[in-house]
Design a protein around this nucleic acid. Structure first.
Lengths: 133, 133
DNA sequence: AACGTAATGTTATAATATAACATATTTTAA
DNA sequence: TTAAAATATGTTATATTATAACATTACGTT
């Protein structure tokens, strides 16, 4: 029997805690800095925890920012597709909740490409910044 | 009067030539290696050429692969949105020609987000690999 | 020609990420 | 219940990706 999906090890939980309490996506070395008081000492410990958290869908990587963010969804498709809205003013990142995979699957099929997964990073201005600027 | 958009400097042309003749996206240090016989000696020279080429829309960066690819389109929106289909088997990368910006703009508006630009990286299996595997 | 702008050349270093290996912990299954 | 297998850890070193800083050169504009 494989372990329960919600059982995290100490380092994994430490890294997830930091990401969940962060308002913006964090870079790996920022996570390292923040977790040094909790016993994490080397970059590799952070990257290993991130790898696992990404694999189980608790964390996503924002490729264009080399940053990591905790998933707010109940259960995300583990380690697969992501769709983000990234504010160019305040750096707020939110996940696009609407499922866009079927649209991409259709678009891909039109050029004989079998869709498997995607990363989507949309840049623009969030509602809050629209109001305050 | 500003210079013509199609006037590239020596280094820029050298880097673009390499990318245009490459079958897959190239990493910056692979470009450096390939261009050393043509006088480019340091990473910064490659990155500077890439920056300019990206700015004028001749080259795109594939964020999830830290790689660069020449744009095959006549004229791409300079330095803005990109949509790629990336084959997980052969690494072939093609640009999605269909304009998906309006779809994203609409999806974004639904959550009060003002769309500005996007990066889309779709992973899957290309037609050729489907046939040969 | 003199100026402003952009590109270049060069060295050094910052930022991001992984290799390699020894050890410890947990899970599984005989 | 314990030995084997799998997973996670700790640690040092190093690979990979990208930029800072500064001096110099080329080039278009007036």
């Amino acid at each position: 029997m494989s372990e329960a999906l919600d059982t995290l090890t100490k380092n994994q939980q430490t890294v997830l805690d930091i990401l969940e309490s962060a308002k913006e996506p964090l870079k790996a070395y920022a996570i390292l800095f923040d977790t040094q008081k909790k016993g994490i000492k080397a970059p590799l410990q952070v990257y290993r925890a991130l790898d696992k958290l990404i694999e189980i869908g608790k964390v996503h990587k924002i490729e264009s920012k080399n940053s990591y963010i905790a998933c707010k969804h109940k259960s995300c498709d583990a380690g697969t597709s992501t769709s983000f809205l990234i504010c160019e003013i305040c750096d707020l990142v939110t996940e696009l909740k609407k499922n866009v995979s079927s649209y991409f699957s259709k678009q891909s099929a039109e050029v004989n490409f079998s869709y498997s997964k995607h990363n989507l990073e949309i840049y623009g201005i969030c509602n809050n910044c629209k109001i305050n600027n």
